[in-house]
């Protein structure tokens, strides 16, 4: 097997006295869609934010395509946090879609997608516009190019968020409960978009509470609990024949919430 695209070893992170990630090991191969599940507060969001260095990590290592994302210099206690310009370059290759969309409220859908293409990728305006239009069309929003986020429904906003992230052609895409702020009838349109991306071979890490979705897109499912990875395997292993006690309890709770 070739080197993993994302390689996480012994990752630790605390907020003050609370340990939020306590020795995470995780490999993600190219083209793989890894689904992360787990109870609230188990550290899923923090894990994604560390991969994109929206949070710094205290200990351990995260490499994306062979590059340590959070620190420069040789590994060990003397490594130093990366400069802002390093971080900007590294983050440009890691896409992220947020639970609350976080669209730029002053920019139209088209401009939201174009901003990174022009300012970060340095594309000429016309080319950036063409690429942004292409991606907005792929997520089904060619009618809404000139709408401001405030004029879009939640599902539409989230699809702009996805287009904004994928248009940068990231090496890996991080999705954090991207449907949990949506009304139930809008969830489907967003998940369909993600399914499409997964079948196109986009490498992604998906945090979700949608178990059917996890089963469908996940080539692998990771269960986190209390700051650790507790189970890691195929959807069949993790979701259908759970061996772990806490995992079984978690799945039972989720099942019960279903109508």
């Amino acid at each position: 097997m070739s080197d993993p695209l994302v390689r996480i070893r012994g990752l630790r992170k605390s907020f003050g006295a609370t340990r939020v990630l306590d020795g995470i090991d995780l490999d993600i191969a190219r083209g793989e869609a890894v689904v992360v599940i787990g109870p609230s507060g188990s550290g899923k969001t923090t894990l994604l934010r560390c991969i994109n260095v929206l949070e710094t990590y205290d200990d351990g290592s995260i490499q994306v395509d062979g590059v340590e994302v959070g620190y420069a210099g040789p590994p060990g206690p003397r490594r130093r946090p990366r400069s802002e310009s390093d971080l900007a370059r590294i983050r440009a290759d890691i896409g992220m879609v947020f639970q609350l969309f976080n669209l730029f409220p002053h920019l139209t859908a088209l401009e939201n997608v174009m901003l990174g293409l022009v300012k970060v990728r340095g594309l000429p305006n016309a080319e950036a516009k063409a690429r942004a239009e292409h991606w907005l069309e792929r997520v089904g929003l060619s009618e809404k190019l000139r709408s401001l986020p405030g004029q879009l429904s939640g599902g539409q906003q989230q699809r702009v968020g996805i287009a904004r992230a994928v248009a940068m052609e990231p090496k890996v895409l991080l999705l954090d409960e991207i449907t949990s702020a949506l009304d139930p009838e809008l969830v489907g349109e967003v998940l369909a978009t993600v399914r499409q991306l997964a079948s196109d071979g986009m490498t992604m890490v998906v945090v979700t509470h949608e178990m059917t979705f996890a089963r469908d897109v996940g080539s692998r499912v990771v269960f986190m609990d209390a700051a650790r990875v507790v189970a890691d395997g195929t959807p069949q292993d993790v979701l259908v024949d759970p061996r772990h006690e806490r995992l079984r309890a978690f799945l039972a709770r989720i099942e019960m919430k279903r109508p």
């Binding site: 929206l54 900007a88 983050r91 440009a92 669209l103 730029f104 970060v120 904004r164």
Partner: peptide, 17 residues
């Protein structure tokens, strides 16, 4: 909103950008 600034970070904008 802090999240919108995070979104700016996530697409690779520098602090000045």
């Amino acid at each position: 909103p802090k999240g919108v600034i995070d979104a700016g970070k996530a697409i690779g904008l520098t602090p000045w950008q």
